[in-house]
């Protein structure tokens, strides 16, 4: 599917999605509440068939966290980038999509470990690299006076 067709399809599935063109891939900003529903549709709809989640990561912005999902279809070979924003920086929560793409479970654990974004319904929301009680190092306001040298 071309980006234009993808846009129409996604707009039909989720009316509140916003689109951003002109970048490398088609970018879709999805409201957090619709994320799980849209992902399920994109995965199981025969026209879109996004079966391969190749990258899942989080970005820290001044007022919210953004979790970025790169989706690929091994059947149609089109790519879409979904972005979901958390409502706040204090209690950042999103729904897990690990029941749709199991690889997401470990990637979500990584996002939780490094950014502190929690995922609802995740069966195993433990730290991945770091110990319990460690801060969230990829946050921009993370301060570690012992290990970080300011220049």
């Amino acid at each position: 599917m071309t980006n234009e067709e993808l846009k129409l399809t996604i707009a039909k599935l989720c009316s509140s999605a916003e689109f951003k063109d002109g970048a490398q891939f088609l970018e879709v900003i999805v409201p957090a509440a619709d994320l799980h529903h849209l992902c399920r549709e994109l995965r199981h709809n025969g026209e879109t068939a996004f079966d391969y989640l190749f990258c899942l990561t989080g970005v820290d912005y001044p007022t919210y966290f953004e979790v970025v999902y790169h989706l690929d279809s091994t059947r149609h070979r089109h790519v879409v980038v979904l972005k979901a924003r958390t409502a706040s920086r204090e209690y950042p929560v999103l729904d897990t999509i690990g029941d749709i793409w199991p690889t997401a479970y470990s990637h979500e654990r990584e996002v939780y470990d490094l950014l502190g974004v929690r995922f609802n319904n995740h069966p195993d929301m433990r730290r991945l690299f770091l110990e319990d009680g460690w801060g969230f190092p990829l946050r921009k306001d993370y301060v570690d006076p012992v290990r970080i040298v300011e220049r």
Binding site: T57, H70, T103, S106, E110
Partner: peptide, 16 residues
């Protein structure tokens, strides 16, 4: 970079 992520193949391969 503001944020840089490496999608490493080993990470996905390990959890299977």
């Amino acid at each position: 970079p503001y944020r840089l992520k490496f999608r490493s193949p080993g990470f996905s391969n390990l959890f299977v």
